[in-house]
Simulated assay, not measured.
Amino acid sequence: MLDATTLPITSENTRLRPLSELDADAYAAGTKDEAVRRFGHLPESDYTPESVRRMIRDEVAEGLSSGTLAVLALADAETDRFVGSLVLFDVSSEVAEVGFWIHPDARGAGHARRGLELASRFARNSGLRTLTARTLLENKASQRCLTTAGFHEIERAVGTTPAGQREELFHYRRDLKPTAQWSLATERLRLRPHNADDAEWLHELYSRPDVARYLLDEPWTAEVTHDKLTERLAKTDIDGKTGALALVIEHDGVPIGDVALWLTNHEHRQGEIGWVLDPDHGGQGFASEAVRAVLALGFDHYRLHRITAEMDARNSASAAVARCVLTVRP
């Protein structure tokens, strides 16, 4: 079921939030648009501000409360102005279908693409494993948005739209695998999310002056280690609230470092990667092996388009890893 307590969610210029009665005028006006009427598959033939307010008070509120339906607003993140609507319906314990439409005055600003990313985060935060979507064959804009947001076409078939019409549709699917449950395995390493038992080795590693000097930071104290570990425990998903993923690098069951991947630009799906390896385990290719695995995760699962890395110019070991696994630019 859907968990409305995780709303609102914001990414760049777009916010996903519950519909408000203050949105009624803009919602009703948007449904008059020819493209919305054709492609939005709205269940009602006509909407007025008052009918939208009744809808929000009744079925929208009931659906959010029960977790079985979420008729939501897409809003401009700066002004909170209504720019479109997104709905999750046919909700089960693991799957929901998503549909969306954008107000004609807000098209071309990327709200649909970001809205789908936010919907995926909302569904994942609610414990769902899969989102599906359907769109008409002639709705090329919707198809581009779905593909960019990580949905994959699975079939082309005739089906019944939410408006009750029989149409030939493209069917899409996006898997929502919770990263916190993952344990990435390479030939020699295991990469896992942090846990509460990581404080001791983290303090031992990051309190070393020869490690801290390249991080432009002071060696960690026990108090700093506690705070840093708390931050890393929350970094379990690029598309989650933190927009980051922090993983421990283990060799033969022993932590030897960590690697992190985080979003730097939500809209353009760009990220940055960073890593720290225990110097006592350097020179064996462990860092390159771990970084390659996380890069593959970023590109193949999270559909990032670009991943960069920055480091202290004196850090020759990390520079060597970057030259090995990344395209180096001045």
Results as ranks from 00 to 15, higher is better:
274 G>E: 11
253 G>I: 06
234 A>Q: 07
164 G>C: 13
19 L>H: 06
126 S>H: 02
197 D>A: 09
191 L>Y: 04
170 F>N: 03
176 L>G: 04
269 R>A: 14
157 A>E: 12
330 P>K: 01
72 L>N: 05
183 S>E: 15
184 L>E: 11
86 L>C: 03
136 L>Y: 00
169 L>W: 09
213 R>D: 11
110 G>P: 09
41 H>Y: 10
79 T>N: 06
196 A>T: 04
248 V>W: 00
202 L>C: 04
215 L>A: 13
148 T>E: 05
269 R>S: 13
311 M>S: 15
233 L>C: 06
151 F>Y: 14
261 L>R: 06
75 A>F: 01
297 L>D: 00
184 L>N: 12
281 H>K: 12
8 P>W: 15
270 Q>I: 03
10 T>R: 12
96 A>R: 01
128 L>P: 07
11 S>D: 05
44 E>N: 13
37 R>D: 09
76 D>G: 03
38 R>Y: 02
85 S>R: 02
126 S>C: 08
312 D>Q: 12
46 D>P: 00
240 G>W: 02
326 L>H: 12
250 E>G: 03
286 F>E: 02
12 E>N: 14
194 H>N: 05
242 T>P: 00
217 D>R: 15
199 A>D: 07
200 E>N: 04
170 F>R: 04
86 L>K: 02
110 G>Y: 08
292 R>Y: 01
285 G>A: 04
220 W>I: 01
109 A>P: 00
238 I>L: 15
47 Y>K: 09
244 A>S: 14
42 L>M: 09
316 S>V: 14
49 P>E: 04
121 R>K: 04
319 A>K: 14
305 H>W: 07
267 E>S: 13
127 G>W: 07
278 D>T: 02
40 G>A: 05
195 N>D: 15
186 T>Y: 14
58 D>R: 09
41 H>T: 01
176 L>F: 09
277 L>M: 09
169 L>T: 06
228 K>M: 08
227 D>Q: 14
212 A>F: 09
191 L>W: 05
156 R>V: 10
4 A>C: 05
244 A>W: 02
208 R>H: 06
321 V>F: 15
227 D>E: 12
53 R>N: 04
169 L>C: 07
77 A>G: 03
168 E>K: 11
166 R>W: 08
317 A>G: 09
235 K>D: 07
135 T>M: 01
